[in-house]
Design a protein around this nucleic acid. Sequence first.
DNA 1: TTGTACGCGTTATCAA
DNA 2: TTGATAACGCGTACAA
Lengths: 336, 336
Amino acid sequence: MATIRDISKLAGVSVTTVSRALNHYDDVSPTTKQKIIEIAKEIGYVPNRSAQNLVKNQNNTLAIILSGLEKNGGKDNIIYRLLSGMYSYSESVNYEVVLYTTSSAHQREKTYVQFCREHNIGGAVLNGIRLDDPYFKELVNSDLPCVLIDIPAIGGNTSSISIHNKQAANDAVSYLIEQNHKHIGMINGHGEASVSLERYEGYVMALNKYKIEINEQYIVHADFQQNVAYEKTKQLLNKCPEITALFCASDMMALGAMKAMKEMNLKIPDDISVIGFDDIPLAEFATPPLTTMEQDFYRMGEEAARQLLKMIKHEKTERNIFLEHNLIVRNSVRML
Amino acid sequence: MATIRDISKLAGVSVTTVSRALNHYDDVSPTTKQKIIEIAKEIGYVPNRSAQNLVKNQNNTLAIILSGLEKNGGKDNIIYRLLSGMYSYSESVNYEVVLYTTSSAHQREKTYVQFCREHNIGGAVLNGIRLDDPYFKELVNSDLPCVLIDIPAIGGNTSSISIHNKQAANDAVSYLIEQNHKHIGMINGHGEASVSLERYEGYVMALNKYKIEINEQYIVHADFQQNVAYEKTKQLLNKCPEITALFCASDMMALGAMKAMKEMNLKIPDDISVIGFDDIPLAEFATPPLTTMEQDFYRMGEEAARQLLKMIKHEKTERNIFLEHNLIVRNSVRML
DNA sequence: TTGTACGCGTTATCAA
DNA sequence: TTGATAACGCGTACAA
């Protein structure tokens, strides 16, 4: 590989001058600069990132930390959209993005902090991390700039991005109630996700608003997973056949629930209504098309990167950023 | 940040010893090694990747190069599955993966080779790259180990992974013919994708086998895009109403085609049959569920990474690797 | 078994 | 406007 040293020899100048020319410093004569750039191009010079990072001790890289890339995951397209938004903004400010994910398979995995330090990461966005993840705690308590998706900002140098989950859940459940549903079940995620608590609160808020009593039996957890939701829905509807509508805290779970209903010979939405959360691509194609609460994950990714850059530059940032949510009415809910 | 120098002072040994202890050399006494490791942990030492890379001049990193992360893309989940498979294997051999994608938005983008050199990438897997992409040519003509997904191996140090596209297309179209279809249209991708040519050949092969004449009017290109397929399908079916079945070179295009058919009041599969390609998650949820040719993208990613590692280690590799395809019969094709 | 000294490729400081 | 030189953190001949 060609180095600036090679260029310096060819151009008959010092490496210092080469470095300055290539970095467009203004204290190098136009002629030498011109010559250097030409030679560099000619011999196919490419700067060595590692060397640059080493001396500059910052490397214009952001990390996105995910809970795991699973073989059969990704069907909700959320990670793709997040990534896509993050790349879009990062690119515009000349930053790069690296992805880190812990695999349960390997024990030799590093903590998030280790990974970031090792790679000299400027900041990280976290998605899908459980609150009880010890590496998560370590990270937010470090001084690394972090943007948490769907988790309220905690710890030293963090901020967060999400929709108003409580309000969104309230809107979804209120919509159900306005269609005259009174016995409304909820398929929630798990206890180690902030959004689960918030969406539960929104559910309760809506019922309270309409003076409908809360029945704790109506609420089950399905770990945000389609197949778990499938099982839990069967159990729930067998135990409480009076339920006429189900509020699911994710579309993937709604899909599982719908599968269960069909197998129980319940017609959607005639016999039972379903409302989802996220508006994933599959929602539109479900039978019937799923009514759901839309979140703009592309924008979340974009905002996360923007926020991170502000934090890196020590600009003033908001602690918690909220994006808008939007109810997408399709055909999985009927008026009673 | 703590460095090995800090550790050496604390431990009262030289940096050399620290380095060796941390890298598990066997020529350091168990006691000193023990002590060093403890101190390292205590002060939260993390090795500096840049420094390591600089001195070792190889950094255990693979790249995945994509044609672009689009705001509304990713619905086919292919990139996710590829990534997921690649990470899985890479992790098992202690390699990392970085993602590179050219955005049409920015001109300051680097060529693939530049990116790889800059980051000291050991090898790259390419997906979704057009044959006429000049950066693609540059890359395969460089000496960087490359694994091409869906493109036959060309250039110096490359190999490829794909299914037998011609055979798979032949299988799909034969299936249609065996259901007594004779007027079979094809929605293909674009001319700068090897798979388009191969799938076209498979289509022709099947028709020839059954002595059905090829009608070039029946074949249109839709750039692998859903909405283009939607438009082209309308045009095609208006022009050639005798068509009873459509072979689509991707599921996303099949989805677009189905939308067009529905709008034309054609019942699927009663009035017209459709067969897709890929078996994306949406296929199962389409109405009716889409019969399609399955590809295992997770495995492709895994194999790509495995192949790359062989190439990096100068082990013997096969030039072209073929995975199996598998027809998934659902309800979008009927027997005439 | 351990330490000294050098080099990886680059940028920054200072002096010329 | 340019150049010599010292860093950055680590790995490794070579010497002890």
